[in-house]
Design a protein around this nucleic acid. Structure first.
Lengths: 196, 196
DNA sequence: AATTAAAATGAATTATTATTCATTATTCTA
DNA sequence: TAGAATAATGAATAATAATTCATTTTAATT
């Protein structure tokens, strides 16, 4: 086994077990078993249980933010940026269910260690949206009367909750592209029927 | 002290402590101390720690749903129902910060005991929105191409996340009525500037 | 192949807290 | 008001699970 592989394995087992049971109900011994290592081995790679959670946030969230930002700089129309963001972010959630559930539950906790992280890193997420909203307002494409902070939170929260609808309706077969289009449509055009 | 008062006191202390620390970090002894009773007393009113959490969900969420439904039947325009819902629900979150934080964190957990509750009771929330959305579509007020399930989740998630923005920006003084108006505006008219 | 160094193990330890229950206080009843 | 019944207490118990570390295994070096 390559160096570094073991750490990766532990991280991925932890994402899975944390998502499955929640941080506190997840036992180190379960993570170790799932990763195929001994309990003690985990402590060679991580200071303690919390340290695993923080490593997941630090590393995995950073990957996502980087990926989204890289894609967004290829567009310059704010409307297109919104569409790209919704598509990328929603698809990312769908393709990383365990990580998504973990972020959605544990990132919300009030724990001191997480709170610090939350306030710092989570705002980067919102900043991505905030930026193309204000850009759109400056370019007179988006309405200027809406506070971009509220809009950023609203869009983020909406995507998040719709992803949970999908996760918790395992019986239903959803068309992800349809969901993405409809979310964009709702944000862009609103609910009300156009009088044409 | 009146009969029943003690149970109420424990419930309210639990809401406070659970919201502050999270369910698992909250100690029975802390809840007892805050409520001004002995640790053992809590077990005269509740089977165990989880039972307190479930009681909070059962009782407090039921109150909210009842209140919203009672108010909604006084309106018949779906657009007005949307406005009423957003206003009532957002204000409820603002006026019950501890309960709001508790619902937002613990209701998302994957625990078996909560999952059962979540799937049953949480859907009642979404059903409220779902109903006036479909009503609006049937009356040709709302666009019919949007899946009302997605819209319900999106609206719920948006309000929830904006409430967290407010909770976690204690320095900023937000005008709640402005937020409510802007949320409604976003849902109803969308982001894009009207070409007039 | 022998020696040293690094990595991994998992049983034992430790710390934490939910829960119990023998005891005490309070309230009710006749 | 005495005696029974009910409610409350909180120190002791029990259960759980994170963490440690003496020992073993594997890898690297000469």
């Amino acid at each position: 086994m390559k160096i570094g592989d073991k750490r990766e394995k532990i991280i991925h087992s932890a994402i899975y077990i944390f998502a499955e049971k929640g941080f506190h109900e997840a036992k180190i011994s379960e993570i170790a078993e799932n990763a195929g290592v001994a309990d003690g081995t985990i402590y060679l790679y991580f200071k303690n249980k919390t340290d695993i959670l923080l490593a997941i946030f630090e590393e995995e969230v950073a990957k996502i933010i980087t990926k989204i930002n890289q894609r967004l700089i290829t567009a310059d129309d704010p409307l297109e940026k919104l569409r790209i963001f919704v598509k990328l972010y929603f698809n990312m959630l769908m393709n990383n269910k365990d990580l998504a559930l973990l972020l959605q539950t544990e990132l919300r906790r009030g724990n001191e260690y997480i709170k610090e992280y939350y306030e710092h890193k989570f705002s980067e997420y919102l900043k991505i949206i905030f930026d193309f909203i204000t850009e759109g307002q400056n370019k007179k494409i988006f309405r200027e009367d809406l506070n971009p902070d509220f809009v950023a939170s609203a869009i983020y929260g909406a995507i998040d909750e719709v992803s949970r609808l999908v996760f918790f309706s395992p019986d239903k077969k959803y068309n992800f592209n349809l969901i993405i289009d409809q979310l964009n449509d709702l944000f862009i055009k609103g609910l009300v029927k156009k009088s044409d």
